[in-house]
């Protein structure tokens, strides 16, 4: 899966956080304004592509790499994103809005795969920091859906 970056783990984590927090929203706004179907940026071996999904109006972020970013510090868990368990339509849970403390394994929403709900679960204890997909948005397997911040968690 690696496509050439040799950054140290803390660098990788930092870049990933920046991509999630700054780059994706900025690109999403630009994509919205442009009327284009797709936008892609490449930088330092990273690739971020945004594409309007077929059904919902919201743009669908597709990170060049997903899953298992390296830990930010020795104390942090290996992953800070809850990933999509399948391909289908995402619905975030009303019980776990941004700011809510969650435990490892808690349901943060579900993905509807042909009528079967597959749970999106918290990868570790922490606080829901950001929900990356809109209700009803089409998502793919392994897509990052919810950022769970371990720093402010009750772990």
């Amino acid at each position: 899966m690696s496509d050439g970056t040799t950054g140290r783990p803390d660098e990788t984590s930092h870049v990933l956080a920046r991509v999630a927090d700054e780059v994706v929203p900025a690109l999403a706004a630009r994509l919205e304004a442009s009327g284009l179907g797709e936008l892609e940026i490449r930088h330092d071996g990273w690739r971020v592509r945004l594409r309007r999904s077929a059904l919902p109006a919201a743009p669908e972020p597709v990170a060049g790499r997903t899953a298992d970013p390296a830990p930010g510090s020795p104390a942090a868990p290996a992953r800070r994103h809850a990933l999509s368990p399948g391909v289908g339509y995402f619905t975030p849970s009303e019980k776990t809005p941004v700011g809510r403390a969650v435990r490892n394994g808690d349901a943060l929403g579900w993905v509807d795969v042909l009528g079967v709900r597959q749970e999106v679960v918290a990868p570790h204890d922490g606080t829901v920091a950001r929900i990356l997909a809109e209700p009803g948005q089409a998502v793919e397997y392994g897509q990052e859906l919810v950022v769970v911040d371990p720093a402010r968690g009750n772990a």
Binding site: T66, G86, V87, V113, L114, V116, E140, Y141, G142, Q143
Partner: peptide
């Protein structure tokens, strides 16, 4: 579109994942 993990049973052999995709 990514439909599942490497294991074929959960990706290329998963009828639900393929149709949903």
């Amino acid at each position: 579109i990514c439909i599942g993990p490497a294991e074929a049973r959960r990706s290329y052999l998963s009828a639900a994942s393929v149709i949903s995709a």
